[in-house]
């Protein structure tokens, strides 16, 4: 079973992800900010990370860098809002595999997740 780390400071978004993805048989680990995400990554070694960009304590871009430093093969998909083009460009250059734009369509999330777990 594939393990996915979901990182978002909004509890509601995590809830939506969890519902959607666990229904598809994925194991879900959650983190509420970038720092928690880095710790969780180290401990859980998930197969995929879905990570928000705007978060307190440590933002998604910084967490991406740290996770990639821990594990060069880490697969991270950024989630962003429209208008965050610049940050998303940076994230892709920093090695993020893909991105999703809010608001999400469940099928886009699933397609993207499956694509990168294949």
């Amino acid at each position: 079973m594939n393990k996915i780390l979901v990182v978002d400071d909004a509890e509601f978004m995590r809830l939506r992800y969890r519902k959607l993805l666990s229904a598809e048989g994925f194991e879900i680990v959650e983190a509420g900010n970038g720092q928690e995400a880095v710790h969780a990554y180290e401990k859980e070694r998930p197969d995929l990370v879905l990570m928000d960009i705007t978060m307190p304590v440590m933002d998604g871009l910084e967490a991406l860098k740290q996770i990639r430093a821990l594990d060069g093969g880490a697969r991270v998909v950024m989630s962003s809002a429209l208008g965050q083009q610049r940050v998303v460009l940076s994230a892709i250059k920093e090695g993020a595999k893909d991105f999703l734009v809010k608001p999400f369509k469940p099928e886009n999330v699933l397609d993207t997740v499956r694509k990168h777990l294949a």
């Binding site: 400071d9 909004a10 509601f12 928000d52 705007t54 307190p56 809002a81 809010k102 608001p103």
Partner: peptide, 23 residues
């Protein structure tokens, strides 16, 4: 930052369920 993130979170949550007025 707190203020910005509050609006960001509200926008993200609202738009994910089609709550256009809030978003």
């Amino acid at each position: 930052d707190t203020l910005f993130r509050a609006m960001h979170t509200l926008k993200g949550n609202a738009s994910s369920v089609g709550w256009e007025a809030m978003a």
